[in-house]
């Protein structure tokens, strides 16, 4: 078992003829993901890698191939429109990798998606992987290993760090979800944590957060009240100066809110084992498991 993606996922790549889109579409295919279609407006009728059909619109791709998940690589200025196009075509899972989308665009997308059945992950995220079954993202596949630890994170490379620590200690992952570093995203820590809690294939979780916002605190409160599975966490940005945006658009301490100290305190209070350093993420989970 896993969450969000598995061997039944039929992938569409929006922006497949671009450099990044093409590179990662190929890499997902090599990992074993079932890639069924690509979309690039005005390039319909072409074949990607001599076999995957490219369509002008998501609507056509959906009808012709039955794709049920999309990975968006469209440039930031057009990405909001591409997400809405996938929503309109009824794609169940939309993962937006694109970085640098204006906040107001995402605000409108989120408001526009309110009553839709689609789930958006990201933007500005590394994607999702269920090791051994489906890679729908830009992560290096080989560091992962099938298993029962769920990982959810705002940061790409910090997720790789946690996964690598787990895999090198012999612990595999059920699913790893990168929710992205933007202030407004489709899916929150809390949303993913709930899915992991319901997933029989996930027996423990690592939650990786960073400064800014209150999403980690919300997840912590829910976990304390509802979850019996062992959880470890790490929060990046304890040394970040207030008022400065640390690379990710959402990683900013403003008006004394969203500090690492505040988040760590909330996680501790919820009985979650907090890693002291980014080198300690897997070990923190193992300590937590040993305690339960």
């Amino acid at each position: 078992m896993a969450i969000l993606v598995d061997s039944n996922t039929r992938l569409l790549v929006q922006g497949i003829t671009g450099k990044a889109g093409g590179f990662h579409a190929r890499s997902c295919m090599e990992y074993g993901t079932t890639l069924v279609a690509g979309v690039t407006p005005a390039r319909g009728g072409e074949l990607f890698e001599n076999k995957i059909p490219v369509f002008d619109t998501v609507h056509e791709a959906r009808i012709e191939t039955g794709c049920n998940a999309s990975m968006v690589f469209v440039p930031a200025e057009f990405a909001a429109d591409s997400i809405l196009e996938a929503v309109d075509a009824g794609i169940e899972l939309i993962v937006c990798i694109t970085e640098g989308i204006p906040v107001l665009d995402m605000m409108r997308v989120k408001a526009g998606m309110k009553d839709s059945k689609s789930r958006l992950i990201g933007p500005n995220c590394p994607g999702i992987i269920t090791p051994g079954q489906c890679k729908l993202g830009i992560m290096p596949g080989y560091i992962h290993k099938p298993g029962n630890v769920g990982v959810v994170s705002r940061s790409g490379t910090l997720t790789y760090e946690a996964v690598w620590q787990l895999s090198s200690r012999g612990h595999g992952q059920s699913t790893c979800v990168g929710i992205g570093g933007d202030p407004i995203n489709g899916t929150s820590h809390l949303d993913v944590v709930k899915m992991f809690n319901d997933d029989p294939g996930t027996e423990a979780m690592i939650l990786i957060g960073e400064i800014g916002g209150t999403a980690e605190e919300e997840a912590a409160a829910w976990l304390q009240a509802n979850c019996k599975k062992p959880v470890a966490a790490f929060i990046a940005g304890a040394t970040a100066p207030p008022g400065r945006r640390m690379g990710h658009a959402g990683a900013i301490v403003s008006g004394g809110k969203g500090t690492a100290a505040g988040k760590i305190e909330a996680l501790h209070a919820a009985g979650i084992e907090v890693a002291a350093t980014p080198a300690d993420m897997a070990d923190a989970l193992l300590r937590r498991i040993a305690r339960s």
Binding site: S153, R154, S155, G156, T157, L158, T159, E161, G181, I208, E210, I211, F234, A236, G237, A238, T239, A240, M246, G247, H248, A251, A260, A276, T277, P278, A279
Partner: peptide
């Protein structure tokens, strides 16, 4: 010098640690 914002922040944190 780090790749990725999260890892870059975490690297600053561990230096300080």
């Amino acid at each position: 010098l780090v790749n990725g914002a999260g890892l870059a922040m975490a690297t600053m944190d561990i230096i300080k640690h």
